[in-house]
Design a protein around this nucleic acid. Structure first.
Lengths: 147, 147
DNA sequence: GCATTTGTAGCTTTAGTTGTTACAAACTTG
DNA sequence: CAAGTTTGTAACAACTAAAGCTACAAATGC
């Protein structure tokens, strides 16, 4: 797969912003830490902005900051912002509608996909961005804040 | 993404085999229902065979059948057989090791990835292939056998 | 006005999946 | 044992999605 690493990069970027909560951080700086191109970061930040996770500002002394504090951002919000419902892919070609299994399997798979997505959400909602930052800074295994 | 639909196709194929439990089913027949090439199916069946989910036989009157009954096959086994640990992708390029966040984020993400995979497994283990087949045949929403 | 930074378009590069052809190996049947 | 069938697999082409890159308009601050 030219697999989609946007969720991982998003967490990285947001952790950087959380660490510099009071500043407007520039995409160039974030790109350096992530080791990629600044445009890639800006594209990502657009999505995060649409999800109301960050606020960006153009112009000199512009940049990006979190839209709310790190302990108010849950990882499922990040997941939804960049990878909505991609736990697994469905059929690329439509199955044979003349086959009794082919005719109905899509609906079953679609339901199953939603079910798994729900499970992922339920897991991710437990972690906040603050938990991530804490884990990054202490080297401890990630765990929920009050746990 | 040239996204990976092997899990979906696997369930489709295994449901077909479950429906024809007493026969050796040919890859050509499965390919027709899935609407793809028989080699694609055979490649998939190799993986499923390695995971001890199916048994194939070469030669005239050869084909593939389930290695155990449909209610003994849990969906997490299928998932592990074809998509081990791909809930989300990690960084493509190594983050900047001189950045305190870049240096430690990979370990945190890796742990998180395993955590999510575990959540997916826990959801999938609840469903058997028999549940899938029942849902396909009745059109009812998939649910666990005794639930 | 000038410098800076985001937002975005458009294109190239990279990489993973799927589709296809071809053929050896294994097996069945007569 | 000969003929026919089917899997297993290699090799490659086609397709697709993500990521990288260049360029530039729009917004902003000094």
């Amino acid at each position: 797969m030219a697999s989609n690493s946007q969720f991982a990069i998003s967490i990285h970027v947001l952790a950087m912003l959380a660490k510099n909560e009071d500043e407007m951080v520039k995409s160039e700086y974030l790109a350096k830490s992530v080791n990629t191109n600044a445009v890639v970061i800006r594209r990502l930040l657009c999505h995060l902005q649409q999800a109301n996770l960050v606020i960006s500002q153009k112009g000199a002394s512009g940049g990006t900051r979190l839209a709310k504090s790190a302990d108010e951002i849950r990882l499922n919000e990040i997941y939804q912002a960049v990878l909505p419902g991609e736990s697994f892919a469905l059929h690329r070609q439509k199955p044979d509608q003349k086959c009794p299994v082919g005719k109905n399997i899509e609906a079953v798979l679609c339901h199953l996909q939603k079910d798994i997505d729900r499970a992922i959400e339920e897991k991710l909602v437990k972690y906040s961005l603050a938990d991530v930052l804490k884990s990054v800074e202490t080297g401890e295994i990630i765990s929920v804040c009050d746990g």
